[in-house]
Design a binder for these strands. Structure first.
Lengths: 342, 342
DNA sequence: ATTGACGTGACATACGTATGTCAATTACCG
DNA sequence: CGGTAATTGACATACGTATGTCACGTCAAT
C-alpha cells in the first residue's frame, strides 16, 4: 500500500483526473456530488499531496518579506544576519527572502512603506513592528490581498495575523524573576529595572512576569519602578547614580529590553559592573562580551536562527495549507551564561 | 538567469545529457576529459542538483534507524517519543524511521543486535550506546556497507562516525558549575555529585566541566567525589545520609546523569528537598515535576525534539551528499527552570 | 581487416502534480 | 422537448532528474 496519488483518488472516486484536480485546487465547475466523492476518496485513502512534486510542476517560488525596525539596534541586526544566513539554507528552498527596514517609531512611515509594496509579488510577510491602529489597518490590507502575515518577536494580538513567532514575554519576565530570586538566595534588597521604552509590549509583559514571580516566590526582593530612558544614555546614567544613593540595598539590575549597552556603560562608570547581579535580554555582540567579562550574570534570549527558520517554515506551511508542527515552531526562552554561549 | 539544470550543463559542456548524468552520479565509462568539462560547467554555472526532483524521479525513500538503550530510562523514553512524533512530520518526508532497543550494558548484546540488521534495507543509523571495542567494530562493519552512522547524545570519538548529534557534555558540566556558583552566591560549602555510573562518557565529561568552573571561578565551593550508585536506590540513600552527617556544610546536590528519581527520593526522605540547591540533567516527567514542586532549582537539558529532527536532517544530508547547516544542527545546552518549562 | 571494448549521444519513459485544450456529456430552464 | 450552460473526461505537456535501451563512433588489439 504505497502512498496514494491523484490517480488513485480518481479511480476510487470514479471521476477523472481533471475533476480531482479541480476539487483539490478549489477550481470552479464541479458538481457538489462529485466534489464529495473526491473528498471521501481522499479521506478513505489518506491521500496527502506531495508538495515537492506539486512545487516542481508549478515551478513554485515562495516570496517572503521580513519587515524589521531600522536604526541602531543590536538585536535587529542579529535577526537581519540570521535572515541572510537562512536564505541560503535548506529551509529557504524555492524561496526568495527580502528584508525591509522601516522607521518603527513612526506608524505613518510604517504604513507608507507597507503600502509601497507590490503585493502581487509577495506570498508572506513577517512583521516586527509595534502595533498601532494604522499598522493594524495596513496588515488587514495586506491580508486582503491573500498574503500571509506573521508577527515576529512582538505579537500583534489585534491584527489577526496568521501566526506569532516569538517567545512568551510574560514567561521571559518570570524567568528573569526566578533567576534573580535564585542568584540572590537568602538576600534581601531591591532591583533596578530598566528599558528603553515601555511602549513596546515586550517590556510591559516582561515587567508583569517579573513582578508576579518576585511577589509570589521572592518577596524579600523589591523591584523598583521601571526606568525608561528613551535612547538617552545620559538618563540611565543619572538614574543609576540616583538609585545607588537612594537604595544602598540595591542588589541587582535587570535590563528588560534594548539599551543594554547604555546600561552596561553606566554600571562600569559607577564601578558596580560585576558586583551587582545583572540580567539582560537578547544575545548580541554587546551582551555576549558582557557575559564573557562577567559583567552580566545571565542573558535571557531567543535563538534568532531558530526564529527566522521557524518563520520561514510557518509562512510556507500557510502557503501550502499544511499543518504547523507546533513542537518544532515553539520558540524557547533560553538562559545564556558564559558557559553555554554559542 | 534561472537556476541551471542538467540540460544547461550538457549544453555548456558540449556533451550529452547521458554523459552529464554519468558524471553527476558517478557512473563508469566516461573519459576523464569529458568528466572534467562537465565538472567545469557545473562550477561555472553554479549548478546544484534539485534534490526534490531527483527524489521524485528516484522514488527515494530514506530508511533510518535509531539504536537506543532499553530499560527503564526516562530520558530514553523521551527520545523514543520524539522519534515517534518526528516521523510524522515534515523532516521525515520520504523517510521510514525505526527504533531498535538494545541492552546497552552488554556490548555483546549490542553487537548481536546490530549484526542481525539487514543492512541492505538501511541508509543511516543513529546510535546512542556506550563505546566499546566491539561496538566500534560493529560500526565499522555497518559503515563498510555504505550506511551512514551518527552518534547520538554520547559521542563515539573512536568510531569514525559521520557526525555527532548532541551537546558538549564538558560545557554542560561547566554550566552546572556556573549555576551552582551563582545560586550559592557568597556562600561556602560543599556539593554532592552523583550519577548512576561513570562508565558513560557523559558523566566523566560533565564532572570535568564542573570541576574546572568551580576551581577557577568558585573556589569557595567544594565538589565531593562522585557517587556512583549503579541502579541501586539504596546506595544513593545511604550516601546522602552519610554526606549530610559528614558534611554539615553541604549546600547543594548535582545529579549528573540518570538516576534523578532515586536522588530526589533520597532528598525527600531526608527532608532536604527544596532546602539544598539541586541541579539535575535531562528534562523528563520526573525532573519536570520536581521543578514544579521546587525540589529542583534547575535542569540542564537538551531539546530532544531538536535532537531527533537534527539527526534526521544530518543523516539525510549525508545521504544526499549535501552540506550540513551547522548553525541549525548545533544542539544547545538548555537551562530549564520552572518558569520556562515547555 | 575484423573483433571487441569502451565512450557517447539520441531518445524514451518515469516520478507525482499542475494546467491547459477541446470535445463530449449532463443538468437545467423555459 | 429543444436549447443552452454547466460539468466532465481524455489527452497532452510540463517541471528537473533518473535511468534504461540502443545504435553509432573511436580506438587498440588481434
Amino acid at each position: 500500500m504505497a502512498k496514494p496519488t491523484v490517480h488513485d483518488i480518481a479511480r476510487e472516486a470514479g471521476v477523472s483526473l481533471s475533476t480531482v484536480d479541480r476539487v483539490l485546487n478549489g477550481r470552479a465547475d464541479v458538481r457538489p456530488k462529485n466534489a464529495e466523492r473526491v473528498k471521501a476518496a481522499v479521506e478513505k485513502l489518506g491521500y496527502v499531496r506531495d508538495t515537492n512534486a506539486a512545487n516542481l510542476a508549478k515551478q513554485r517560488q515562495y516570496r517572503f518579506l521580513f519587515v524589521l525596525p531600522e536604526g541602531p539596534n543590536h538585536f535587529v541586526e542579529t535577526i537581519a544576519t540570521a535572515v541572510e544566513e537562512a536564505s541560503g539554507a535548506q529551509v529557504a528552498d524555492r524561496t526568495d527572502v527580502d528584508v525591509l527596514l522601516v522607521d518603527a517609531a513612526d506608524p505613518h512611515a510604517i504604513v507608507e512603506a507597507l503600502s509601497a509594496l507590490d503585493l502581487s509579488t509577495l506570498d508572506g510577510v513577517a512583521m516586527m513592528v509595534p502595533e498601532t491602529p494604522q499598522v493594524r489597518d495596513a496588515i488587514a490590507h495586506i491580508k486582503s490581498a491573500g498574503i500571509y502575515v506573521v508577527a515576529l518577536v512582538s505579537d500583534l494580538p489585534n491584527s489577526r495575523c496568521d501566526h506569532f513567532v516569538g517567545v512568551d514575554n510574560f514567561s521571559a519576565g518570570k524567568i528573569a524573576g526566578a533567576l534573580l530570586g535564585k542568584f540572590l538566595r537568602n538576600e534581601t534588597g531591591s532591583i533596578l529595572v530598566a528599558t528603553n521604552s515601555m511602549v513596546a509590549r515586550d517590556s510591559i509583559e516582561r515587567r508583569f512576569g517579573l513582578d508576579e514571580v518576585l511577589s509570589r516566590d521572592y518577596p524579600r526582593l523589591t523591584a523598583l519602578p521601571t526606568i525608561e530612558f528613551y535612547d538617552d544614555p545620559e538618563r540611565i546614567h543619572e538614574t543609576l547614580d540616583h538609585a545607588l544613593k537612594a537604595h544602598p540595598e540595591l542588589k541587582a539590575v535587570y535590563s528588560m529590553g534594548s539599551g543594554n549597552a547604555a546600561m552596561l556603560d553606566a554600571l562600569r562608570e559607577h564601578g558596580v559592573a560585576g558586583k551587582l547581579v545583572a540580567i539582560a535580554h537578547d544575545l548580541t555582540t554587546v551582551t555576549r562580551q558582557a557575559l564573557i567579562d562577567g559583567e552580566l550574570d545571565a542573558v535571557i534570549a531567543q535563538n534568532v536562527g531558530h526564529l527566522v527558520r521557524s518563520t520561514l517554515r510557518v509562512l510556507r506551511a500557510k502557503c501550502d495549507g499544511t499543518d504547523i508542527y507546533e513542537a518544532q515552531e515553539k520558540i524557547r526562552i533560553e538562559i545564556i551564561m558564559r558557559e553555554n554561549l554559542y
